[in-house]
């Protein structure tokens, strides 16, 4: 009898949890076992994969083959080459290797600077009492609705007047500014979730705001910072409008996206260049996304559902 009691006790809740999740799993199984449902899901999955796969295969086929036959011929007559990548990366007309450097040089400061600024601002809005705090916060929040198009013409003339036009500075500054309202809003939400008692306790110990910010809050915010960093990284790396407007005419500054878009217009039938070029521009975001997917999804959800 003494052995049955400890065994019996945990069984009922365990069993209940099991059946519940099991029931949902069974329901899900029923859902997909209806043929129409599985066909719809499969068709969507295929439609979302095949176009990318087609271009990826094309990027590894010899130039002549690409002109003569569709990428699906690869399965019957596999011809593999890295020439396209070689040409697009180091060829005189394209030189994507240098553009890759430009994209990288643009992106890192455009992620680090706005996040640092937003963290400081969000801290002030959340934990420092000062006159006009609420009005200022609402104003910053409302700035999210301003489309960046509205700012581009005056910003460009501002950059020309100050002599910054055509340098990396214009893009760093622009991306930092455009990211601030959303970043402050998101990080403020995360900061508010930290228990006030923690901040109070630090203040009792005689810590000033700067110390509290760096020693108490920053370590707790790491997941939020990671989430927004991934989000901002993909945003800046993939941006076309800002780069085209401020660096379109500066070959030492233009990022990959601008040149890929240009190639699609001027050499739209040179698919050996376009396919390889497109994948050179996509490889880093894909790696970042696949390895940090968790953070990206979290950032996305925080950004939309919290509203």
């Amino acid at each position: 009898m003494t052995t049955t009691t400890p065994v019996m006790a945990p069984v009922p809740p365990d069993e209940r949890r099991l059946t519940r999740s099991e029931r949902r799993a069974v329901a899900a199984k029923n859902k997909l076992s209806s043929p129409a449902a599985s066909i719809i899901a499969l068709v969507i999955a295929v439609l979302w994969t095949v176009p990318t796969l087609g271009l990826l295969i094309t990027s590894f086929r010899p130039e002549l083959d690409i002109r003569r036959s569709g990428w699906w011929s690869f399965f019957t007559d596999p011809q593999f080459t890295l020439d396209n990548y070689n040409e697009v990366l180091y060829g005189g007309g394209t030189n994507f290797a240098a553009l890759f450097v430009n994209s990288l040089v643009i992106t890192l400061p455009a992620v680090v600077i706005p996040i640092s600024l937003a963290l400081l601002a969000a801290y002030a809005f959340a934990w420092i009492k000062f006159p006009g705090r609420n009005i200022l916060f609402v104003a910053v929040f409302a700035l999210q609705v301003v489309p960046i198009q509205v700012t581009l013409i005056p910003l460009l003339s501002l950059y020309v007047d100050t002599g910054l036009a055509g340098s990396f500075w214009t893009i760093w500054l622009s991306h930092s500014i455009f990211a601030l309202p959303l970043a402050i809003f998101l990080l403020h939400n995360f900061m508010k979730e930290i228990p006030a008692s923690l901040v109070e306790a630090a203040r009792m110990d005689g810590a000033g705001h700067v110390k509290i910010f760096f020693q108490v809050l920053l370590p707790l915010l790491t997941p939020a910072i990671a989430a927004f960093s991934v989000f901002q990284f993909l945003w800046v790396w993939n941006d076309l409008l800002v780069a085209l407007t401020f660096a379109g005419g500066a070959p030492d500054v233009v990022p990959l996206t601008v040149r890929v878009a240009e190639l699609a217009g001027t050499r739209g039938s040179d698919w050996f260049l376009l396919a390889a070029g497109a994948f050179v521009s996509m490889v880093l975001p894909l790696i970042v996304f696949l390895s940090l997917q968790r953070y990206f999804v979290r950032g996305l959800l925080a950004g939309s559902v919290k509203g």
Partner: peptide, 12 residues
């Protein structure tokens, strides 16, 4: 995750 530019090339 990829740029809209990349997606446009894929569909072009």
């Amino acid at each position: 995750a990829i740029s809209m530019v990349g997606a446009s090339v894929i569909w072009k």
